[in-house]
Design a protein around this nucleic acid. Structure first.
Lengths: 231, 231
DNA sequence: ACAAAAGTGTTACTATTACACCCATGT
DNA sequence: ACATGGGTGTAATAGTAACACTTTTGT
């Protein structure tokens, strides 16, 4: 099949669930579909895979074309391919997901989309096809991840306060955490480093700023590989 | 594309990584490929997806056709689709995985396979295409699972000893565990129940037999959903 | 009596939880 | 002075890790 001048696989697509964190809310990057079917509905950004394109590269290209968001590290989440998920023909969709800081990207709609925007998780409307399900799956994966691994390097600014980090965790898991105990836990992991800097111009005691220690962070995240029995 | 009289998608396949546990060794269900290309090499069981078949159903059907193993619960693991992974044309493979007790199944090769067998993990040879990678991915997922959730209901006989359960954990994570502490941990989870029965005809003190409490087991495994922050 | 594997007691240490409290800033 | 969040102390409880020891069977 030819699409926008390129030869693409005609029965497989990629869709991306991009999470952002802004003003203490978890957000999702969505596009407004500008072609039939389901024109006008919001959708996860994605599209067709080129015949000579690896899956990860296709995901990167498609995300950039549809939204302008580029150079981020996405991970495969799952594959959706039931017979009835798509109205006209059998299409199998591979979903990818990533975490980013919305502030860092200039959004720009692609050829098939009229709008691109970050929507707060609680305000996500009905999406095209089975995209709500795909989003749910990514969210579940993210929530599972945050239980066992540190998070935030991709979602927070370079320098952040402990309250921001806590708010991020709370936004993801959807419930409040105890300040004292949250801090103890985070410090124990040694993934963040206190800076000699403080918040400015806030009408309360300024919070100290922290940064992730990237070496430690990546090592801890990667110990998906060093197994102890936790259960 | 028509395959064995059925219309199938011509660029997507499913392959299954089935883990078994026997004589304290982790085993993999493999088939010997009997068609070109790569005839004679061992492979993960799988095949083409029917045009009117959901992914999960296709996985079940394909596993049964290729090996005789049926009625087991498989889970999707990942999707492999790089351009060069398959020699002749672009094929995308969705991998599924499950845990079973080898004893329970009569193996029977399918139309394209000359042999079916359980091979110990350490003895898995070079497989067709990128099947070694697919197996690695499933193994990694299994190892990750066993860190956080109880395991064994599908892999052990109805009644088992604590040493068997420990050996299973050791086989999966690949290192020895302390008996005392393993037991304390397992009991704390409340997923197993002591029976009023003991091993027979062993030349040492007979071990007590246990069973999984299925209700509790499934509840604990399913609390993928009840998030506390563990990190 | 001995080998082999099953099974238990105990202790030092670390982590978790739940509170209560103090601190620094802008208005 | 006070509201607002930032930040700390502490004590009871629970979980972890390591090691030594006892028990029950067949030979």
């Amino acid at each position: 099949m030819i699409y926008n001048g390129e030869e693409v696989l005609d029965n497989i697509t990629i869709d991306c669930t991009i999470f952002g964190f802004e003003r203490n809310r978890l957000k999702i990057l969505l596009v407004k579909r500008d072609i039939e079917p389901q024109k006008g509905l919001w959708a996860l950004p994605g599209g067709w895979i080129g015949v000579n394109e690896d899956l990860d590269s296709a995901a990167r290209r498609l995300l950039e074309e549809a939204t302008g968001v580029r150079d981020i590290f996405m991970k495969q989440v799952a594959c959706f391919g039931n017979v009835s998920r798509f109205p006209e023909k059998r299409i199998i969709t591979i979903s990818y997901s990533a975490l980013v800081q919305p502030k860092g990207f200039a959004l720009r709609p692609g050829p098939d989309t009229s709008e691109v925007s970050w929507l707060a998780l609680e305000e996500v409307p009905q999406l095209t096809f089975d995209h709500n399900e795909i989003l749910e799956a990514s969210l579940k994966t993210l929530r599972n991840h945050v239980r066992h691994y540190p998070i935030g390097l991709e979602l927070l600014p370079e320098k952040f306060t402990l309250s921001q980090l806590q708010a991020l965790h709370e936004a993801i898991i959807g419930k409040p955490l105890n300040k004292r105990n949250f801090r103890t836990k985070i410090f124990k992991l040694k993934v963040i480093r206190a800076l000699n800097e403080w918040q400015k111009e806030v009408s309360h005691r300024p919070a100290q700023l922290y940064s992730f220690d990237k070496d430690v962070y990546y090592k801890v995240v990667a110990d998906e590989y060093e197994y102890e029995l936790v259960i």
